[in-house]
């Protein structure tokens, strides 16, 4: 499985990468929404799933999802939102933007990997 993880916090990026790579999941990272699009465009083949933070400079997670969903070549890529806020409203916003699901930060590694496996159908 190949995953693109976007978070403006280097700590979280490193953690996500460590978590995923320990499970044999190839991980690319980006620092914000704009950078996320750039990295996404540079990945060939496209990643199997995307993880994104919400609160980021330049382009936030929802904006990022919106842009990805506008692009037909990325249709169907599951996007999970990593967020510290678990409130319903945020989920609805994520949903409205086209997110596939959400993981609450600080994330539990098993949970994160499990969710990725569920949404991608890959192991």
């Amino acid at each position: 499985m190949r995953v693109l993880a976007i978070d403006d916090s280097r700590t979280i990026r490193d953690m996500v990468r460590l978590t995923l790579e320990r499970e044999g999941i190839e991980t690319a990272v980006a620092e914000d929404g704009i950078h996320g699009i750039e990295v996404l465009d540079s990945l060939d083949p496209r990643p199997d799933a995307i993880l994104t933070d919400v609160n980021m400079p330049r382009l936030d997670g929802f904006g990022f999802i919106n842009r990805v969903r506008e692009r037909s070549e990325y249709a169907g890529i599951p996007i999970l939102v990593l967020t510290t806020e678990s409130a319903r409203e945020l989920k609805l916003k994520a949903r409205a933007a086209g997110a596939t699901g959400w993981i609450v930060k600080p994330f539990d590694p098993a949970r994160l990997v499990g969710a990725l496996r569920t949404v991608t159908g890959l192991t």
Partner: peptide, 19 residues
């Protein structure tokens, strides 16, 4: 337009400097 860009070789997903 939507065809993937004529892919400069992107060897490894996990390598991640700012392009």
């Amino acid at each position: 337009d939507t065809a993937p860009p004529p892919a400069a070789p992107k060897p490894d997903v996990s390598v991640q400097p700012t392009p």
